[in-house]
């Protein structure tokens, strides 16, 4: 049995908009094991980044309900001073945009060094420097001694993202949260960075939460996948199951809407309507129902829950049993006539 690193139970993260709380993350239950990559997929506004921020305690004005157990200890709503002992040491985070994630006025070496200093102040300055140079080397930065003295604007995007990663792994964290780590990068750099994250994971035996909207990245990296829509998890499963037989209408729609460099398709699937804004999220019933209006209302559950369809494969709502794309429905009718 895999060792549980992070357990999220019924997490609800709400923000106040005009005197009313709206949940950006709603009833999320997840586990991340050691040496495992859990990918969280969804489009912007689905709550995946809000989830990552909740784990790291980075929200400043949010109401957090439920439990976030890190190695058995609940870290939801603990005092910042307590959280600061874990952040950067036991859990690290890689941010999306390497252009803004680094302090423009601080030397690269000092920025990485800060992560070490904060959790180990017994090291001398030169020992710390040595450690930083080793880290820079580890993330594949050429001439680390030189880069140590440089400022962020002197490095390319790919190099900066390596610096961000070096900062996140400075203390060999057990849990690494990567929030769209390659979205801002070119594909060749992306594949290098993804390889780097994978190697580091194997090296440190860490658990990784990979937040992404890119199903290609998921296919390359993930052991398990959670698909989020409108603040909720709509489907979870191991990567092979999910890619071979996705069940939830949203997951299936998502797969059909990506132009694929390796496959061929004439027309991309378009999901009807738009992702509702946080204030307008449907609070009851299946949240994806308004986007598949051709599916009979009776197909949806009143209060959709996650159903375990196979060991480890969960799908929210019963509508998946009745879901068909409009094209498929037409074809069937066509067949029926002939």
């Amino acid at each position: 049995m895999a060792e549980k690193l992070l357990e999220i139970k019924n997490l609800k993260t709400s923000f106040r908009i005009r005197d009313e709380y709206h949940a950006a993350v709603d009833d999320v239950t997840l586990t991340v094991n050691k040496n495992e990559v859990l990918a969280i997929v969804g489009e912007s506004g689905c709550g995946k980044s809000a989830l990552a921020f909740s784990i790291m305690g980075l929200h400043t004005r949010a109401k957090i309900e439920g439990n976030i157990l890190f190695k058995g200890e609940d870290i939801a709503n603990v005092a910042p001073s307590k959280l600061n002992k874990l952040r950067g040491k036991n859990m690290g985070m890689i941010f999306q945009d390497p252009l803004t994630a680094l302090n423009p006025l601080m030397k690269i070496g000092d920025q990485i060094g800060e992560a070490i200093l904060l959790h180990n102040n017994t090291l001398s300055k030169s020992q710390r420097r040595e450690k930083v140079v080793n880290l820079l080397q580890k993330v594949g930065i050429p001439r680390p001694e030189h880069v140590f003295e440089q400022y962020p604007h002197e490095l390319s995007g790919g190099m900066r993202q390596r610096v961000v990663i070096a900062t996140a792994i400075a203390n060999e964290p057990e849990l690494l949260i990567a929030d769209e780590p390659t979205t801002a990068l070119d594909v060749t750099i992306q594949s290098q960075i993804l390889d780097l994250i994978k190697d580091l994971k194997d090296d440190m035996d860490s658990g990784i939460v990979l937040i992404t909207h890119d199903l290609g990245v998921v296919a390359e990296m993930a052991d398990r996948v959670a698909v989020m829509y409108a603040g909720q998890i709509v489907e979870v499963g191991d990567v092979l199951t999910l890619f071979e037989e996705p069940l939830h209408p949203y997951t299936r729609s998502l797969f059909n809407s990506i132009p694929n460099a390796h496959g061929t398709q004439d027309k991309l699937h378009v999901i009807q309507g738009i992702v509702p804004a946080l204030q307008n999220l449907p609070r009851s019933g299946c949240r994806f129902a308004p986007r598949i209006p051709w599916i009979d209302e009776a197909a949806h559950e009143e209060q959709p829950i996650l159903h375990e369809v196979k060991p480890g494969h969960f799908v929210r709502c019963t509508c998946y049993k009745h879901f068909k794309f409009p094209e498929e429905t037409k074809e069937e009718q066509h067949h029926g006539v002939s």
Binding site: M56, S81, G88, A101, M106, L118, A170
Partner: peptide, 29 residues
């Protein structure tokens, strides 16, 4: 609200340290 402040927070820096090391210098520019 800048991202590098989040980076500092994720490193485990305390609020005071974040202000002294990261925010003030950038704001005084």
């Amino acid at each position: 609200q800048k991202d590098f402040v989040l980076t500092a927070k994720a490193k485990g820096a305390s609020e005071t340290r974040i202000y002294n090391q990261h925010i003030l210098r950038n704001s005084l520019l």
